[in-house]
Nucleic acid binder design. Structure first.
Lengths: 207, 207, 207, 207
DNA sequence: AATGAATGAGAATTCATTCAT
DNA sequence: CATGAATGAATTCTCATTCAT
């Protein structure tokens, strides 16, 4: 097809931000859409619109939707993990380190409430992110495993399978944080204190 | 309008079998598809196929998909609630009743592992069942509320908000049961013993 | 399949009204549903429900939905035609008979406003009633044809094709009656007087 | 955000042809299907097939089916209105302008017979186009209202409600045009002359 | 005669993904 | 690199009609 001059149109527009910005915009869009519209409406079209890019653009950076959500998940996980281990010493006093870890976790959830919510949603929907990403994400970090095993050995922690310990430590905190978020609040100091104390009562050994 | 005797007629007909069977088949299909394919694939088409009926048939018995899933949810809830309150006495000894309740709950999850998993899925996806059904289902049963309040008053239970108590009682058991289910197992006696003990340690008062 | 006694159930119910009543109920239901829900929602299921019978019953009396609506249409047409020709004499004075006819028509529309509306709907949707029924219904009744031809001959009526005459006589009255119906009113005396006078001005000959 | 010059980029790209063509094809398809299959069969699937596109394509250009039909309606209305007001002067001689308007209308119907038929269908089925579009379309254009009011004041037009005047002017012409269309014809010169004369006789005042 | 149940065909709409530009 | 347009496959739901009883 040949075109005569007046069949062309001249568009003037700002230079496109490069990769990083697009990716950031996409990641942020995932979080926004998930929280505002619910993950049921987390469609490629909505994400792209929110990010201000074309749906097709997503496929330049990621194999598919799943891969993208997986990356968002890992990003968020890294964000929270960064706070989780602040001042943590697996070899320190068990009770203190135990409570420190949970305090760090609660602090992280409060620091990134939106991201935490999204991570919670993704945890509950393993099939929207790639299997391997999810399985990796599920594994306890090595320092925590070390801490847990040492605790078992010196009987400062109750002899319970890891999944059970998690069910009485991180999970209740996550659960209550989600409830607070839906109430447009954060975990209160009182919340955190009670949660940590209950977790410790549940998990300490020698009983 | 009044009718004289001979305007009445007596009709003898076989009890409808098909209806009941179809409904049972549909409910079972919801459970099967949810467990085998994940709730993301819980489409009307798949449910109907699994139940061996036409998708249109579903709409004879239910207003829409949501209404049907709501009914399945209520059925399952009734099943589990029936076990939950066996021998439960809100006015009995706090520790004993507390542990009895959780034992009953664990027993119920083990008695209906498939149904329990599905209920877990539905609990995490409130929007796939009608709002009123879910809200009803979410409320703590009155006997449990009474028990909780009494426990607070006599300080046998820790002063913690209901959502926090739940996060250290029913939720961990549910969580571990789900893990066991994915391992094709049930909660072991050891699991149950530890879970209940940890819950009690977390929740008992006077500390 | 053999059944034991308790697999039977005894149902006591009023004797069913026979054919005529069912048919009347169905016809009335067509009118009700058309007016209340719009002809877009004129489904067999709705008609049957409104009539208090099973959808299957309809097919005992009629070949299909179309045939049934056709019969309703003819019934209504007969109702209106019965009023249309009251005191009409094709050989009488042209102006008087012309106005009498239209007055009769307006009177009929006001006497059966609901039926008239339904007939209007059916006229606008020829494909929901059988072709032959509709075509028959469209033909001008013989007395009117005679009157029209006589009027042409003695020049008391304008020389215009029948479809054009109808477009300035019956159609405007129908049209305004429909508007009034939507306003929950009938044709007023003033309406009727003006409509008839305008029709006569349009159609009289010798100009 | 301010941008320096080199953050702007000039993009030269061919004018989109496809879009326009697809939209035209869709509009034409609506007309074709409506005329060939009746509006009862005016399904998205049929429209898309006729236009040679996928049904999903329709939703790129329009929010939904209703919005699309509304646009088609407005296009057609614009087409006809353009002819309707040719040389029309609301302040000119009443009889002349009256007849001019109807002549313009008849001319428009003859110029776009297919479109006119479709507009007729849409006028009879307000619910298939968006409410606001229809309401806008239904209002008499302001020049005609002005003309009508002036005619009432100086008694050159009969004192009759607007809906009655319409029922003796535009509606009969529409009606006869539809009949002619079904006969694969247009309004003949004789048709038009008679229709306009009858309309004038019906509507002129001072009688 | 009468019916409740059942269904195939088809309705509108959405979505993840691809492709020509 | 970036995109608007395009679409096949899937979604939920409705309906006229039939069938076993």
């Amino acid at each position: 097809m040949t075109l005569t001059l007046n069949e062309w149109t001249f568009i003037i527009q700002p230079m496109r931000y490069k990769d990083e910005n697009k990716i950031k915009a996409l990641h942020q869009a995932v979080i926004d859409v998930t929280l505002n519209e619910g993950y049921q409406n987390l469609s490629v079209a909505k994400i792209a619109k929110q990010a201000g890019v074309s749906p097709a653009t997503l496929y330049i950076y990621y194999k598919d939707k799943k891969a993208m959500l997986g990356q968002v998940y890992l990003n968020i996980k890294a964000l929270i993990d960064a706070k989780l281990f602040a001042n943590f010493d697996p070899k320190g006093d068990t009770e203190f380190q135990f409570k420190l870890l949970l305090m760090n976790y609660a602090t992280a959830l409060n620091a990134y409430p939106r991201e935490s919510m999204v991570m919670g949603v993704f945890n509950e929907h393993p099939d929207i992110i790639p299997d391997d990403v999810f399985e990796t994400g599920m594994n306890l970090a090595q320092p925590i495993q070390d801490f847990y095993e040492k605790g078992l050995l010196d009987h400062r922690l109750r002899a319970a399978a890891p999944e059970i310990v998690i069910a009485y430590t991180f999970e209740p905190i996550t659960s209550v944080a989600q409830i607070r978020f839906k109430e447009n609040q954060l975990l209160s100091k009182a919340d955190i204190q009670v949660l940590i104390e209950m977790a410790w009562q549940a998990c300490q050994g020698g009983r």
